[in-house]
Amino acid sequence: MNTNKMQVEIWSDVMCPFCYIGKRHFEAALEKFADNQQVEITWKSFQLDPTLPEKEELDHEQYLVERKGLPKEQVASMLDHVTQSAKLAGLDYHFEKVITVNSFNAHRVIQMAKTKGLGDAAEERFFKAYFTEGLDIADGATLTRLGKEIGLTEAEVHDALTNEAYTGKVNRDIYEAQQIGVRGVPFFVFNRKYAVSGAQPTEAFTQTLDKAFAEWRTEHPAPLLEITEGPSCTPDGNCS
């Protein structure tokens, strides 16, 4: 964690459709934010359904009907609504392809990726794998291939899936979520003072970024140096 940057922590589950949409809305706000280089993002693990098996038993619609007890018509309407919301965010969801399995293994690999500065890349790749490509995010071979795509080695993915340290990291994030009152994801925490729950519109993230950063900057003022100028070179190659 870089103490010279304002922290934004995001609790998320890669099997959460609104987490991917929320990621896009937040990214749109961050792109327009003038001080975005002074913001550090940390992804945090959360499990919507830790009871899911590692092997597929039901397709996604059946899962929502049988495991969550929702009426079939309501599920069909809900999935259509989410698909359209995703499309507005530039995402292509295919729920008919989704392999509904336990996300814990994916979270362990994300925790490893975070140690290499690849947390955001891992989240992005796993979201796409789950919602667009219909890949099995509990399968070790699939996770290895996806991990290598973002820059991890096969040995690092194996370590993430076998080393209890990464299990502990996932569980700590989940416990921390419980302590701060996270009841659903995505859940964005800005400078440990403000939170945005759910895939809010981009404007909501912009407003919270502005408010949180203004307070953070007051607490962490930029150094003002009295500079004596002399001959120097700039990164664009100009020496004078």
Rank of each mutant, 00 (worst) to 15 (best):
R217W: 00
C233H: 01
N238I: 13
Q84G: 05
E124P: 03
A212W: 02
E61D: 02
E73L: 12
A86Q: 06
A121D: 14
E219M: 03
Q200E: 08
F187G: 11
A89N: 14
N102C: 09
A160V: 07
F190R: 03
F131L: 05
A204E: 01
G151D: 14
Q38F: 09
V170P: 07
C233W: 01
T218N: 04
P186M: 15
N163I: 11
N238C: 09
P53D: 15
K193V: 06
N191Q: 05
P201F: 06
K72M: 07
F127W: 06
A195P: 14
L143V: 11
F104A: 09
K114A: 05
D59I: 03
I174A: 12
Y63S: 09
Y20V: 15
R125Y: 10
R24A: 08
E203P: 04
Q111P: 05
G184Q: 14
A129G: 08
N4E: 01
L224P: 04
G151H: 14
K87S: 10
V65P: 02
K116I: 11
I174Q: 11
G237H: 00
A28Q: 10
K211H: 01
K169I: 04
Q200A: 08
K169L: 09
E57V: 13
G90A: 05
E124C: 04
E176K: 14
A195F: 09
S103D: 07
E133H: 13
A113C: 06
A89G: 13
D159Y: 06
E133F: 12
V157W: 07
T83G: 00
N171H: 11
N238L: 12
V65G: 07
Q38A: 01
Q179N: 15
Y93R: 02
E27G: 05
F127T: 03
E96V: 00
I137S: 06
I150S: 11
L79T: 00
Y93G: 03
R183A: 14
H25A: 14
P201T: 07
T234I: 10
E31Q: 12
F213Y: 01
A141Y: 12
D35T: 00
M6C: 02
D13A: 13
M15W: 08
G22P: 13
E164L: 05
R145G: 15
I41D: 07
E226M: 13
P53C: 11
Y93K: 02
K148G: 14
A222W: 00
I227R: 15
G147Q: 05
K5S: 00
V75N: 00
G184P: 08
F33I: 02
H60P: 06
A195I: 12
N36E: 02
